[in-house]
Nucleic acid binder design. Sequence first.
DNA 1: GGATCGATCGGCT
DNA 2: GCCGATCGATCCG
Length: 196
Amino acid sequence: MDHLGRDFFSRDTLTVARELLGQRLVRVLGDRRLSGRIVEVEAYVGEGDQACHARCGRTARNAAMYGPPGHAYVYLIYGMHNCLNVVTGREGFPAAVLVRALEPVEGIAVMREKRGGRGGSELTSGPARLCQALEIDRRFDGVDLCEVDSVLFVERDTGVPGEQVVKGPRIGVRGDEEALSAPWRFCVRGNRFVSR
DNA sequence: GGATCGATCGGCT
DNA sequence: GCCGATCGATCCG
């Protein structure tokens, strides 16, 4: 299977978000692969997006979003949860896609251990849950997902046909009316691993 | 099943 | 000081 490269991530953020559905997020841990199909994402686009972490400009925390596409932006939320984003668009413009849910594929037993014995839809349905299941934390902030030997990357999988894509407003965001109503959340219709 | 609320702490509005 | 792109426990029905 083919490791998605810079060209995939350097496109328009909404296009990347839509096309990430159905692709495979892979975490290599020692000699094991933990992976899942991406079934839910959200786009965060530029300083003008009031829900985007870059709305107040560049800081040490969000610096990765200003960097080259195809890198990870991992941040800590509520003082305890990690969330994974993939940087998109052109370097210098802060935009990223938040990975909100996976359908587990490989290494399910290992993920279950990392999730304290929880399984089923509690394994990877939620941005912080999937980071815990795949052992993704701020060590990955700024890491290049397009490097051939990266231990975190996205692999081409089956994708999702248009009629299975559901678009809607993002979850849990604050901001102006535009930020609250923008249909920048994409998920796979009827998939049991989608959050909420 | 859905709603509500406490946990817990780094970065900043 | 304050608050958050959340989770999990607990309550109610």
